[in-house]
Design a protein around this nucleic acid. Structure first.
Length: 183
DNA sequence: CTTTCGATGATCT
DNA sequence: GATCATCGAAAGG
């Protein structure tokens, strides 16, 4: 079972909440996402393909990984259709698998700080440039469907300056593992 | 609780 | 040379 990646980024961002994301058996439940569409000034794909964003124009179900602020690796799921340039940023997980590994990578014991934020997700899962362009439908990735429907909250995306008003950040309502609270 | 600021480097103009 | 889909520590209420 895999998510339906042939969706708009907004639809996929909502759909992914509640799925369990593991890399080599380490990870947790996706509780926060952000949508980035083509024709979206905030998206890395807005000005067309470049060396960095090439994976965004690959087939749906591709990982797009990039380094931000020279320090933090961020993970996205490419969606809609090949060549389109749409993706969903994985912003936070509720840690469930491989807690000890994530605590070592993150240098903290606080479960709430293991994967609450895109840079933290990258560090907790051991992501780097080598994951850019890999398919999400095979190891080391593993995706497990939600057991039950989740209550979705939404709000403006974080840390962007363009199209900042669009409510394209989504989260599991009331989850204590969000990067920031969400109405 | 809140705000501010430095770290750190690839990418694009 | 400026920007950047961030984090953590420090300082101030």
């Amino acid at each position: 079972m895999t998510p339906n990646f042939n969706e708009s980024p907004v639809a996929l961002a909502r759909q992914l909440l509640g799925w369990t994301l593991l890399i080599d058996g380490v990870g947790g439940v996706i509780v926060e996402t952000e949508a980035y569409d083509v024709d979206d000034p905030a998206s890395h794909s807005f000005n067309g393909p470049t060396a960095r964003n090439g994976a965004m124009f690959g087939p749906p179900g591709t990982a797009y990984v990039y380094l931000i602020y020279g320090l933090h690796w961020c993970l996205n799921f490419v969606c809609r259709k090949a060549g389109h340039g749409a993706a969903v940023l994985i912003r936070a997980l509720e840690p469930t698998h491989g807690l000890d590994v994530m605590r070592q990578r993150r240098h903290t014991a606080d479960i709430r700080l293991l994967a609450a934020g895109p840079g933290r997700v990258g560090q907790a899962l051991g992501i780097d440039r080598a994951f850019d362009g890999l398919t999400l439908n095979a190891p080391p990735f593993q995706l497990i469907a939600p057991a039950a429907a989740v209550d979705v909250a939404s709000g403006p995306r974080i840390g962007i300056t363009k199209a900042a008003e669009l409510p394209w950040r989504f989260g599991v309502a009331g989850s204590p593992f969000l990067s920031r609270r969400l109405a």
